[in-house]
Design a protein around this nucleic acid. Sequence first.
DNA 1: GCTGCGCCTG
DNA 2: CAGGCGCAGC
Length: 736
Amino acid sequence: MNLRSGGAMDSPSDLFCQQSSPMCPFGLYRSPSGSAPSAPRYPGGSPPTYPLMSPLLHPSSASQSWGGYRQRPGLFQAPSLEQELEDDGMDEPEHEDELLVRGPAAAAMAGGPTLLSHLFPGGARRGVASEPEEWSQDVLQVKRLRMESSGVGKRDGEAHEGEDERRGRARNAPQQRPDEDEGRSGGPMPRKGSREGRKRQRQELKLQLQETREKLLELQKRVWKAYDKQQTQEDQRRDKGKGEGEKGRMEAEEMEEMFFEEGEGDDHLFNSEDLLPQGHLSSKKNAQQNVNGTGDLSPDETMDLDVDLEQGLDRGSVWVGCGLIHGEWEGPSGGQKFAQALKQELGSAVARVIDRVIRLYADGENSAPAGLAALVVHDQRNGGLGSGLRNADDDQRRPSGVTAAQALEQAEASSLVPISRHQEKRTNGYSGLPPSGHRGPPQSSPNLPHLSQAPALPALLPPPPRSKDHFLSSFPSAPPAVPLPLLHYTMQHLFARSLSNLPLHKDSLPPEPFLDFRSHGPSFPPLPLGLGQLEPPLSSSGRGRDGGIRGGGGGMGGMDGGDLYLGAASSQEGLSPCHLKKAKLMFFYARYPSSNTLKTYFPDVKVFNRCVTSQLIKWFSNFREFFYIQMERFARQAVRDGVVAPREGGLRLGRNSELFRILNMHYNKSNDYQVPERFVEVSELALREFFSAIQGGRDTDPCWKKSIYKIICKLDSPIPDSFRLPGCPVDTHRSV
DNA sequence: GCTGCGCCTG
DNA sequence: CAGGCGCAGC
């Protein structure tokens, strides 16, 4: 299973596991920024793998995108709601804390643009707005060099089922291409038979795609090499005295395997069989095998695209992967559409590669050995440890004494050198992989979690927004950083626009802030062309469009059904996940809504019968339960920590606190709605009440919570009018 | 009796 | 998050 797929983002999850978790030394009053780099936030062997760098592929340049993110003021900052309570000392969170709250990922992202701009000297700027011709030139160069350096003889892989055979086939796929390249080198499309011409065109485009993938692989390897220099230094220092020869060899081999798995998986995707109409079934079969057997570079969506493409071309079926219906690219603009689809695919692949690289660097700058080890373990798990090429040798150790910064510089520089130079390095085979030290025993690094199966994911990475059950249940003391789901959607946004802007001049695209992904298409995945009938899953909730109500939260302007609200199933009988999301947001305002209130604010429920009412009431009961459990939990922790003066800053519920993060994660999972200040105040008050009750020993009374409930239930505030609309409200202040 | 709440459990 | 249960208020 590829958790990278969008589906992984869709499964609703909750944080209830936290409430049943034992108390842990979590940071109550402050985001555990200091501990973040080493905190084992991703136990369970399921580290997050969603894209970090996707926004960098935004056509409007990476830096702008990043800047857009960093400038995003409303993420947790001052709301515009009036403060109705007289609570004192509700200071605005400090900026540094804000960054910390957002999680280490924000810090990682901060370093992203620079890295990317170097890794992709042109691509980052051009993004997928580049023309296919531009790509093809590059990939042709890569291909040429690859063919020169590889020198691997052709080997006609028979239909063996062994890994090596398949790998060999895939590896040789490029060498089989020259025959077919004649058409391209000799000039564009054939003249006779438009059918044949189209077919040939398609094949060439596929070839270009493959070659570009190879280029990406090369890039990745180079980065690995560069990183390895730094890593080797660390390893040598740590492994001094240990028998590192054997260990290093093994690890180098494993790393090599990983790489080869990736590369071959990609190559395998474009097995020559894929080019043959009669190879559909087998190619699809192989592709699916790759889904299970390869790493990041061959995600399922990639498979889908390729496989569906094949099917669509030859069977007249729908190519769902890119939202293109079969036949669309056979018209006059078909080639263009296909090119767009190709770009989409390429962008996806690029994003994944860069994500991985960034992850590595982010890791390297904090807890490099542990983090990289974790990543390696993860990749090996995900990518499957096949019988990869094993010709690594320890002689290829990188010179020591290279710092992370130096490695970064080298990576940046090497990405700018001509590929031919890179090819020289590649003559070392895959030995550029880190030879040792990446998988030291857990005790070798205090930063590693005790259990080796809980890889210490790079702390700079936020947890996957939708798959936190694992690590939360295991590490209740380290709640996840504020998720960055927007990152995950950015490529979708990018692709959506890439296709939707097809008729326009690509170069004239106005630069858009990165966060503008919200303004494109509420559905996820936003299959851009005419697949709107697919019901957007819940995870897309809140990913609505921009341009709705702003500032006041009460305005209802711009309500065109798509700007402010995710269309819930229009006027349905039961309650939908969108309703649940809406109810959670409503909880920010009303903890004890009456049934009448509920009825008012869920007008799209066709028959508001007792069942629906009870369910809504039950929802809010559950919300309250979670709320109070968290309050009590943190209050007890505060008591244990010896907090004396809860009102003098000891029990402040700032927006940078762990408690706030937990609450926000629970009620505002997609983090697209700014938590009203009022809710923060109410929460803080509840926290204090719990604290004083516990501190005063009142909790021995079996009914000790009732008084607190009584207080809280009086603090309900009016729900904004925007909630009266059907569907799911999205942020009202966030982007102001 | 109905309704809503809180607690517990799965 | 839902179901079940007991309880309390109307």
